[in-house]
């Protein structure tokens, strides 16, 4: 497997986690690609228009990449914070539709703003790494950090409050959980992660345009989570990795690959309605791993 594909898979896993965070709190938000696009534009603009960010050597400085990721995450988070209050009053499919509309609004803005390069977008984004391996290593660290945070959520008060809202929002409010605030935190965290991922992806892809945040991408990233399972962070990560790799690995079969890819998305939920990773399978895996060292 080549490093470029691996990098795409890791980015897919990060985006899947961004969809998972609101879903962990019962909120079906499809806004992830919109925030991803915003993060990407922050990185693309800074590194092509600001000399310090572009650097002078063969590669752009690493600190610039990190700074762009932070700024991209902050901008995405601020947008989420501003619109989250009213939008999160919607529930279920209505929230999904509102977030699709948000992605569309951001896409049209990105197409038409005077500094985003129109339909062509922004080119020749400088590379902080000479080869794809560098991206892979860097993204792996980022993914590990995101997974660790999601794992900590399982034992934290915030994570329990999110799970309670997912199970029964009204009962959660009745035991003193500030449900609007908790949902907003999940939504903003999701946006920050998408923004950070977009900033990284803009460099890796070398060019950035409004197609990064499209309705198609909303559906694809949702498929990651549906396929992998939305109960534990491992599910979206697996879903993001596998479903990003699949179209590429199926390339040899030609046009048939789209049909095969579609079938996987269709059949996955049929055979694994809870996604690949469920509580029972995780427990089974834990028992297996727990026993293994004691076996003679």
């Amino acid at each position: 497997m080549d490093a470029a594909l691996l990098e795409q898979m890791l980015l897919g896993a990060l985006l899947a986690l961004s969809v998972y965070l609101p879903l962990r709190c019962g909120q079906l938000s499809l806004a992830t690609p919109g925030f991803y696009a915003v993060g990407g534009y922050v990185a693309a603009l800074l590194s092509t228009r600001v000399a310090a960010f572009a650097g002078s050597g063969a590669t752009s400085p690493l600190w610039a990449l990190v700074a762009e990721m932070v700024l991209g995450g902050i901008l995405a988070g601020l947008i989420a914070l501003a619109i989250g209050g009213p939008v999160l009053q919607l529930r279920g499919i209505y929230l999904a539709i509102a977030t699709i509309a948000l992605v569309e609004i951001l896409r049209v803005l990105n197409l038409n703003l005077p500094f985003t390069g129109g339909a062509m977008g922004i080119f020749a984004i400088p590379q902080p790494f000479e080869q794809a391996d560098g991206y892979v290593l860097f993204t792996l660290v980022l993914l590990a950090l995101a997974c660790w945070l999601c794992q900590r959520l399982e034992v934290l008060r915030l994570g329990r409050a999110m799970a309670a809202i997912r199970d029964d929002e009204l009962a959660a409010a009745s035991v003193g959980i500030d449900t609007p605030r908790t949902k907003l935190i999940a939504f903003v965290a999701s946006a920050v992660l998408a923004g950070v991922t977009g900033a990284l992806a803009a460099h890796f892809l070398n060019a950035w345009n409004a197609r990064a945040g499209s309705f198609d991408a909303s559906i694809t990233t949702l498929a990651f989570v549906v396929f992998g399972g939305s109960r534990y962070w491992l599910g979206p990560v697996l879903g993001g990795l596998v479903l990003t790799a699949l179209p590429e690995l199926l390339r040899p079969v030609g046009d048939l690959r789209l049909i095969l890819f579609g079938s996987v998305i269709l059949l996955g939920p049929l055979f694994f309605p809870q996604g690949l990773v469920t509580a029972e399978r995780l427990r089974g895996l834990g028992a297996l791993l727990g026993r293994a060292p004691q076996a003679p």
Partner: peptide, 27 residues
Amino acid sequence: RLFESLSVRENVLVGLHHAARAPLLGA
């Protein structure tokens, strides 16, 4: 209206939400 996917213990821990405040970094 229990939190059905959570364990019995976790249901009570959700009820202890207000008592569970802790500094985020330490947590």
